[in-house]
């Protein structure tokens, strides 16, 4: 037995003549916080919809707890908390009535309704109609709804979009807290910073294809392998750069008095010595670890054309 809680195998989906998802294999392990990254139109939403059987794949399988969802049917969705992107609810129901409705659909205890509204900070608006709420408030009720019934897996599609930074922070804390209690969290995002911040593992999707799936640190490492040393010098920067390139640091750039060079961690002192010999006084320096953002741009390339996330019509 694997400890994979959620898997897709050779998942394919085509809308009219657009191939939205082209044979996708994902492996989400139990206890993961899994970031599903990709530019708009990469097929993230379509993949998530297929996981929940909201869209039928053309071919391929989805396994939840090792069981094929084609066989488990409705029961496959038991134990999943799901929030679609930019969901709206019912204008004439209050926050509490909305929670009660979903509690009934999920066989969750009624007490959870108020607890979870409090968790997302919406208890003050418990008896107000959703028609009067801002987008962010509706999103928070949506998050509370997804947490009903202590789900094993949380699947959130762009959960922080539409939330102001304070609430985005609170939501990330909720995700971490749920994960601490053993919930596997799977969420899509186009914000690399939040994925880097809280995720253990990450997949990058581009044009319906998996680019990479690995731990966050390995995805970030895998691209340059070398941290970047950024040095501000006074004096002759040009000759300092020449000295560095002559010493074998070919990946060296200069902008005015700022030199950036990709080095291994143990080569930093060597760089400093070369600069001293070249009569460049170091005013300031810092190292920049390669970020997921670099990885992302590198992996998906510069040519990715923007397009809307495709919804099932």
């Amino acid at each position: 037995m694997t400890d994979h809680i959620l898997q897709t195998k050779a998942l394919k989906k085509t809308f009219k003549n657009v191939q939205a998802v082209k044979g996708l294999d994902l492996n989400v392990e139990k206890g993961d916080i899994y970031g599903f990254l990709g530019p708009n139109g990469a097929g993230k939403t379509t993949t998530i919809k297929m996981m929940l059987d909201l869209t039928q794949p053309d071919s391929g399988d989805i396994l939840i707890n090792g069981r094929n969802t084609r066989e488990t049917g409705v029961l496959a969705r038991k134990g999943i908390g799901y929030l679609p992107e930019r969901a709206q609810f019912y204008r004439n129901l209050t926050a509490h009535q909305t929670m009660e409705f979903f509690a009934e659909l999920k066989d969750a205890p009624k007490e959870e309704c108020d607890e979870l509204l409090a968790k997302v900070g919406m208890e003050k608006w418990r008896d107000e109609k959703l028609g009067t709420f801002s987008k962010g408030m509706v999103q928070l009720v949506g998050v509370a709804q997804a947490l009903l019934g202590s789900p094993q897996i949380l699947i959130l599609d762009e959960p922080t979009s539409g939330l102001d930074p304070r609430w985005a922070r609170a939501l990330k804390d909720i995700m971490l807290e749920m994960n601490g209690k053993g919930t596997t969290v799977f969420f899509s995002s186009h914000l690399l910073s939040e994925v880097q911040e809280i995720c253990k593992r990450v997949a990058i999707l581009n044009k319906g294809q998996l680019v990479i799936e690995d731990t966050v640190s390995r995805v970030s490492e895998g691209l340059t392998g070398k941290p970047k040393l950024i040095i501000r010098v006074s004096g002759d920067a040009a000759s300092a750069v020449k000295a560095l390139i002559d010493a074998g640091f070919s990946d060296t750039q200069v902008h005015g008095q700022v030199i950036s060079v990709n080095v291994d961690a143990n080569q930093k002192s060597q760089v400093m010595k070369i600069l001293a010999l070249a009569n460049a006084d170091v005013e300031d320096f810092k190292t920049e670890e390669s970020s997921l953002e670099d990885a992302f741009i590198k992996y998906i390339g510069e040519d990715s054309t923007p397009g809307g996330d495709r919804d099932e019509a």
């Binding site: 919809k49 929940l52 049917g73 930019r86």
Partner: peptide, 14 residues
Amino acid sequence: ENGSLGVVMGCPVS
């Protein structure tokens, strides 16, 4: 169209 059906269908309902 507004996404609420998705949330409902994401629950264990047929």
